[in-house]
Amino acid sequence: MSFKVTKTIDREANRLVKNYPEKRSASLMVLHAIQEEFGYISKEAEVWAAEKLGLKPINIHELVTFYPMLREHDPGKTVVRVCRTLSCALAGSHKLHGHICDKLGLDKNGHGLQRTRDGKFGVEFAECLASCGTGPVMMCNDDFYEAVSNEASEEILKKYDA
């Protein structure tokens, strides 16, 4: 969703800023709130956040480009995150990731998040998702899936293909 200053985000940002003795300290929290609401942090959002925090847009842009979990671009409607940390890797998460990419027509060797042309899916690797005993694990947005086989992944994707 492209950024616009909604009542919700404005109220939330004001609330967050008030939590700290210095406005600047709320930077990451405000960015998370924006990403939560709009899926990513566009240039307009950076400029708006900077203004809220009493900073210059470059100060916010530094943060957004530094942290991999902060997104500069629209990641797609459903973000599929496949764990690649050791336990899941041993349980076949790279194959799972490759399979999902093939099914969605994405480049499995591409750097960072890969997004489908229709904007429905974005696929990326994630570090340990904290269910190491049941690998390979993945998440679709906030939904968690354990011991995902290649076949199961196809079923899961269908659920989100709306």
Binding site: K43, K56, I58, H61, E62, T65, F66
Partner: peptide, 18 residues
């Protein structure tokens, strides 16, 4: 306050706001 460092690690680059 016009300049900053964007990106991370060995990709760090001096930049203005785009």
């Amino acid at each position: 306050d016009a300049l900053g460092i964007v990106n991370r690690g060995s990709y760090n680059t001096i930049s203005t706001y785009p």
